[in-house]
Amino acid sequence: MFEARMAQASTLKKVLEAVKDMVSEGNFDCSEEGICLQAMDVAHVSLVNVLLRAQGFEMFRCDRNLALGIQLANLSKVLNCAGKDDAVTVKAEDEGADTAEFMFESSKGDRITTFELTLMDIDSEHLGVPEDTTYTAVIKMPSTEFRRIISDLSTIGDTVTIEVSKDGASFQVSGDIGKGNLCIQSNTAADKPSERVEITMEEPTKQTYAMRYLSFFTKAAPLSDTVTISLSPDVPLVVEFNIGEEVGYVKYYLAPKITE
């Protein structure tokens, strides 16, 4: 038996918004630790890794590990029926269940909506993402600022080069209409920690990425005030949004473009 109750259905809704344009389906792996989703885009260029820790739920019970194979567009339809302040409870029988139940309760407890979502068998391979990668450059910034940079620059071109040097971090883009270069610098004096920009550099780093995927990643901005972008020569970029203090995270990995 699996049963988990989250006080804010909106958190789950935001997680779905953060992944559904990039991947169409995935296994939500449920264990005592929490709920984990790992999925790659169809081109196998990027990967999203979501973790919702058990302690981030009001109630969490998972007797046996199970994978809920879900078509994300369908789950999105169900979650769109949740009210802004609704709580959500997800229930499923053990492995082999055909459906999962989603129940939304209004904050006053006077409106309860229940859906049975059809599950599917998804053959998904888990990629072994190394945990011990050391990155030569890390940029921490407000997630709204990251979203704006990507949104602005993606109108100019479809490839962006991120360069971190002692002068700051620059995002360079070129396209048919011309070129753009946006440079940000560390700003650790901002009043609120969430408004600070922190650029950490072990060594100057310059890598090129497809803008299309970075645009997908900005969909997670509503989940977190800040985003951390970690890059190193010739390894995948990591874009990480933490959910709350302890609730979990959405991490995206993106293979760089490399000049051969």
Partner: peptide, 14 residues
Amino acid sequence: TPVQNDLEEFFAMC
């Protein structure tokens, strides 16, 4: 022109 790499190859390499 830079060539887009496949993510699986990276993680296989690591």
